[in-house]
C-alpha cells in the first residue's frame, strides 16, 4: 500500500521467493473497491470474485449515504496535503469523493518514482545523496524460490490489465494548475496558504498549530488527530464526517474581533 516504505521488500520477496507484487490502495471507497477487485482478479477464482463483489455491494450503501449527506457541504472546497510517502497521494482519493480539489500536495521524503511513477526508475542515477538505503543484492533462493504463477499466466493477467510492480505516482492523478512541492518549507507553506487559501490543510503535528494560526484547520495525517480509522469503506465514512466537521465549523469565522472588523470610533461617549 505504501509505495515508499515497502516496495523494496516486495521487490526482494519476488526475486528471492517468487511472490509477485501489485500496488493497492485502501484509502478512498472507490480505491478500496478497485484494490479488492484487483486482488480477486489476480487469483482469478470466481468464488472469490463474487465474494469481493458482495462485500463491495454491502459496504457501498453506507458510503453513499454518508457522501450524500456530507458532499453538498464539502463540494468545491480545497485541500492541501503535505505528508509522508504515499498519503499525500492517496488521501486525494477521499477528497475527490467529497468533491474537493487537492490544490497542492507533496511528500516529506519521497523519491521521484513516488511523484512520477516507477517508469522513471531505470533512468535514475544513484549517487551518494540519493541513495538513502543500502542496496541489497538479492537472488533467487535455491530451495524456496517458487514462482506463484507461470510466466504465461502472468502474461495473460498483464494483458487483462493487472499491472505488476507498477505505480504511476501522485502527479498523474492531480489536476491542471495544481502544485506539487517536495519537502515544503515553512516559508513556502505560508506563501501557499496566503495564495490559495485552502479550506483544509493536511500535515503533521509540527505544522498543525502554525497552519491553524492562519485560521485554516489542519488534519493530521500521521496521527489522524487521534481519530480514524480512515482506510477501507468504514474508514472513508469516518473521514467524510471528519472533514465535514473541519471545513464547515463556524469556529473559523470568529477570527476577527468586532473591533478589528469595524475600527471606526467616535472617541466620545455615545450617550453624550
Amino acid at each position: 500500500m505504501c509505495h515508499r516504505s515497502i516496495n523494496y521488500v516486495a521487490e526482494m520477496m519476488e526475486k528471492k521467493f517468487g511472490i509477485p507484487w501489485i500496488k493497492v490502495n485502501f484509502i478512498g471507497s472507490e480505491a478500496t473497491a478497485k484494490s479488492l477487485r484487483k486482488i480477486a482478479q489476480y487469483y482469478g477464482e470466481q468464488e472469490l470474485i463474487d465474494k469481493v463483489e458482495a462485500v463491495i455491494a454491502e459496504e457501498m450503501p453506507d458510503v453513499e449515504k454518508a457522501l450524500a449527506e456530507v458532499r453538498p457541504r464539502t463540494e468545491g472546497k480545497r485541500a492541501m496535503l503535505f505528508v509522508g510517502g504515499s498519503r499525500a497521494h492517496h488521501y486525494q482519493e477521499l477528497f475527490k469523493e467529497l468533491g474537493m480539489t487537492s490544490v497542492s500536495a507533496g511528500y516529506e521524503f519521497a523519491h521521484r518514482d513516488d511523484y512520477e511513477g516507477r517508469h522513471v526508475l531505470p533512468h535514475l542515477k544513484v549517487d551518494a545523496d540519493s541513495r538513502n538505503i543500502e542496496e541489497l543484492e538479492v537472488s533467487a533462493d535455491p530451495e524456496r524460490y517458487r514462482p506463484r504463477k507461470s510466466p504465461e499466466a502472468m502474461e495473460s493477467l498483464t494483458k487483462q490489465g493487472v499491472r505488476f510492480k507498477d505505480y504511476e505516482g501522485m502527479m498523474p492523478d492531480m489536476c491542471e494548475q495544481t502544485l506539487v512541492i517536495d519537502d515544503i518549507s515553512q516559508y513556502e507553506t505560508e506563501q501557499l496558504i496566503d495564495l490559495w487559501k485552502p479550506d483544509i490543510f493536511c500535515a503533521g503535528i509540527k505544522e498543525k498549530y502554525t497552519v491553524q494560526k492562519f485560521g485554516i484547520p489542519l488534519k493530521q495525517l500521521h496521527s489522524y488527530d487521534y481519530g480514524g480509522p480512515y482506510a477501507g469503506f468504514k474508514g472513508a465514512v469516518n473521514f467524510y464526517k471528519e472533514i465535514d466537521r473541519m471545513v464547515n465549523s463556524k469556529i473559523w469565522t470568529y477570527l476577527k474581533a468586532p473591533w478589528q472588523k469595524d475600527p471606526e470610533l467616535a472617541a466620545t461617549y455615545a450617550w453624550e
Binding site: 473591533w259 470610533l265 467616535a266 472617541a267 466620545t268 455615545a270
Partner: peptide, 12 residues
C-alpha cells in the same frame, strides 16, 4: 467589550 468600546469611544 465592543459595546463598551463604542459607547465610551475607546480603543480595545
Amino acid at each position: 467589550i465592543n459595546t463598551l468600546r463604542k459607547i465610551a469611544g475607546v480603543n480595545v
